[in-house]
């Protein structure tokens, strides 16, 4: 059985068959696994929101452990009492807030006539209402995002950050406890109630994070651009919620 593998016609047929075979294998795999992947993503979002609120399975002082996936849906329902969509200062209660794609909203908001839909999650912690705000921005290589839990005064109660592809050991450290824990208790308003956000600052020199009202946390060495990205997304996204929070007082 000698096939002339040098012939052009053979090469073309081979290429077509190869593409068809590989294409159908991958398409079949992707659509077959899609429900599982989607469920995983939904659980992840719930875990992240709960984590920002301080509901987690952390044991040591350095590990990040979420509520396990089989319990998270239940826990999420119990903890998050209300989900809002905020447009300007108007808030609509809806169970759908959770499905808003922040990335798409960001694109739509480029049109000046469009009022951006902002999702907000309300829960109760130690008897006080606590709000979780999703944020999204750019790191060095790819997207970074997170959830910031704040109280009524918009003082940070906890955060969770994640990234699509920051450098391991450097930018990827934003999802480590030592970085995220620093945010708890930080104020986002400066003197005379001006909005300042929280800066990931190189020269902050506050490794134990004792100064909570300086609007800054210590940066990670070697991750300047990712850190700047965190600063930027906190400023940009939290600011949009300020008008609504003013109405709560």
């Amino acid at each position: 059985m000698a096939i002339d593998t040098e012939k052009n016609s053979y090469t073309i047929i081979f290429a077509i068959v190869m593409v068809l075979v590989v294409g159908s294998i991958l398409a079949g795999l992707a659509s077959g696994l899609k429900p599982l992947v989607d469920a995983n993503k939904r659980f992840e979002k719930q875990q992240n929101i709960l984590y920002a609120m301080g509901i987690n399975a952390n044991e040591g002082t350095s590990d990040v452990a979420f509520i396990s996936t089989d319990k998270v849906e239940e826990e999420f329902k119990n903890t998050i009492t209300k989900q809002y969509i905020i447009e300007g200062t108007e808030a609509t209660v809806t169970p759908e807030a959770y499905l808003i794609d922040i990335k798409k909203e960001e694109t739509k908001a480029k049109d000046p006539n469009y009022t951006r839909k902002l999702p907000l999650f309300e829960g109760v912690k130690d008897g006080n209402p606590i709000y979780v705000i999703p944020i999204r921005g750019k790191g060095l290589w790819d997207a970074i995002w997170g959830f910031v839990a704040v109280d009524k005064e918009m003082t940070v109660q906890g955060v969770f950050f994640d990234h699509a592809g920051e450098t391991p050991g450097l930018g990827a450290e934003i999802k480590q406890r030592y970085f995220m824990d620093d945010f708890a208790g930080e104020h986002i308003f400066g003197d005379s109630n001006t909005f300042k956000g929280i800066t990931v600052a190189k020269g902050n020199a506050d490794p134990k994070n004792e100064r909570k009202t300086d609007n800054a946390v210590d940066a990670i060495a070697g991750a300047t651009i990712t850190g700047d990205g965190v600063t930027a997304m906190i400023k940009k996204d939290l600011k949009m919620y300020v008008p609504y929070f003013k109405t709560l007082k």
Binding site: L26, L29, L33, L36, V37, N40
Partner: peptide, 15 residues
């Protein structure tokens, strides 16, 4: 192809 298969399977079963 192999890499995508690994990636997809991990996403579905070991997220």
């Amino acid at each position: 192809t192999l890499v995508i298969i690994v990636d997809q399977v991990l996403k579905a079963f070991a997220y």
